[in-house]
């Protein structure tokens, strides 16, 4: 079309100003954020000292592993429950602080937000454990995979126990029980002699325990997300 004609048409037929635009837009409730962007926003609400605490536990494992006597070496794996406790505590925060009712009435599914945060922390912990496994394994003269099983199993056991306890007990009580469960798993790793717990013949049992604790974590995660969607009425 001729540019001059186009320009003249535009000036002759000016579009009318919008009327009740806000009211109209309110009737069309499109999401303002895509799913992925929204989930990343929720991960941003994990407290900074949770990340720092996780890195601290990782460094402590390496420091203690370096300094430990050979027969006590694998007791460093007893620190992994602390990582699990930090991750699970983020999932139960809203109930502890009385924010759950407000969150449940919001548009976006709160269960998804909780899952995003716990998954982010869980993946971060896996990276830390994945980094620790070859280092600790080489210091102890064991394969990386074997070291990984020793690190991951108490972590998953604690995570499953803590999620169950956080669901059953509200507020600070739930957090205290979760901390006690983490302490119990830690104590178990210290109490059972290392030469019995970490001998080569026991490895198949460790693999079995890993599979069971992984299944428990999947189950508990599902129940935690499901429970978060509806307020527990008491």
């Amino acid at each position: 079309m001729d540019q001059k004609l186009k320009k003249e048409l535009f000036s002759a037929f000016e579009a009318p100003k919008p009327v009740k635009k806000d009211a109209f837009l309110r009737t069309h409730r499109r999401r303002e954020m895509g799913n992925l962007r929204w989930l990343l926003t929720q991960v941003g609400y994990i407290r900074w000292y949770i990340w720092l605490g996780s890195v601290g536990v990782f460094l402590l494992m390496l420091i203690l592993g370096r300094a430990a006597e050979p027969r006590d070496f694998w007791t460093v794996t007893s620190l992994t429950p602390l990582l699990a406790l930090l991750a699970v505590s983020e999932g139960s925060r809203s109930r502890r602080h009385g924010m759950d009712e407000l969150e449940l009435a919001c548009r976006m599914p709160v269960g998804a937000a909780v899952l995003a945060r716990m998954t982010a922390l869980g993946l971060f912990d896996l990276v830390l454990l994945g980094a620790a496994a070859p280092v600790l394994g080489s210091w102890a003269g064991r394969r990386t995979l074997e070291a990984g099983v020793y690190l991951l199993t108490p972590y998953l056991l604690t995570a499953a126990l803590d999620m169950e306890l956080s669901r059953r007990f509200r507020g600070t009580v739930g957090l205290m029980y979760s901390a006690a469960a983490a302490g119990a798993v830690y104590a178990l790793g210290i109490w059972i002699p290392g030469d019995r717990l970490y001998r080569a013949e026991a490895l198949p049992l460790w693999w079995g325990a890993l599979v069971l604790t992984l299944a428990a974590v999947v189950f508990e995660t599902y129940k935690t997300v499901e429970r978060r969607e509806i307020l527990q009425w008491s």
């Binding site: 999401r31 303002e32 954020m33 609400y45 407000l102 969150e103 919001c106 548009r107 976006m108 937000a113």
Partner: peptide, 11 residues
């Protein structure tokens, strides 16, 4: 801002 994010509002 936190609750706005849960209500799906852009930043």
């Amino acid at each position: 801002l936190y609750l706005a994010s849960l209500k799906g509002l852009s930043k």
